[in-house]
Simulated scan of single mutants.
Amino acid sequence: MSLIYEARWLFLDGALTTIKITVAASLLALVLAFIAGLARLSPFAPVRWVALAYIEIFRGVALLVQLFWLFFVLPFFGIHLEPVFTAILALGLCNGAYGAEIVRSAIAAVPRGQREAACALNYTRWQTLWKILIPQAVPLMLPPFGNLMIELLKATALVSLITVHDLTFQALTLQQTTMRTLEPFAVVLVGYFLIALVITGLFRAAEWRVALTGGRR
Results as ranks from 00 to 15, higher is better:
A25E: 05
G146N: 02
L167R: 08
E101F: 03
F85Q: 07
C119E: 15
G14E: 02
F185N: 12
C94R: 07
W130K: 09
W9F: 13
W208Y: 13
E6S: 11
Q175W: 09
A15F: 07
F44S: 13
F34E: 02
G146F: 05
V84C: 00
R59F: 00
R209Y: 15
R180S: 08
R125M: 10
R104D: 03
L182P: 00
L64S: 04
L133P: 01
G78Q: 06
F169G: 03
Q114T: 08
L189D: 01
G201M: 08
L142T: 01
P46H: 09
E6T: 10
P135E: 01
L28T: 05
I79R: 01
F203W: 14
I199R: 08
A137G: 06
T173Q: 13
N95F: 15
Q176I: 02
L93K: 03
I107L: 14
N122T: 12
E151H: 01
G201F: 12
A171S: 14
L3H: 04
L91K: 07
L142A: 02
R8F: 01
F58W: 12
A100T: 01
I195G: 06
L27H: 00
T200P: 00
A206F: 07
A117H: 12
G78V: 01
D13K: 13
Y5D: 09
S105F: 04
A90C: 09
R125Y: 14
G92R: 08
I132L: 03
I107S: 05
A108P: 00
P75E: 07
G113R: 07
F58K: 02
T163Y: 09
F58E: 00
L121R: 09
L63W: 08
R180N: 14
K154Q: 11
L172E: 13
R8E: 03
R217M: 06
A39H: 08
N147C: 02
L148V: 00
T181I: 13
V159D: 05
T156A: 04
N122M: 14
F77I: 02
L172A: 14
I162N: 10
G146D: 06
P144N: 11
G60D: 03
L133C: 04
A211P: 00
W130I: 06
H80P: 00
P43L: 09
Y192V: 12
Q127D: 09
I4P: 05
V23Q: 05
S105R: 06
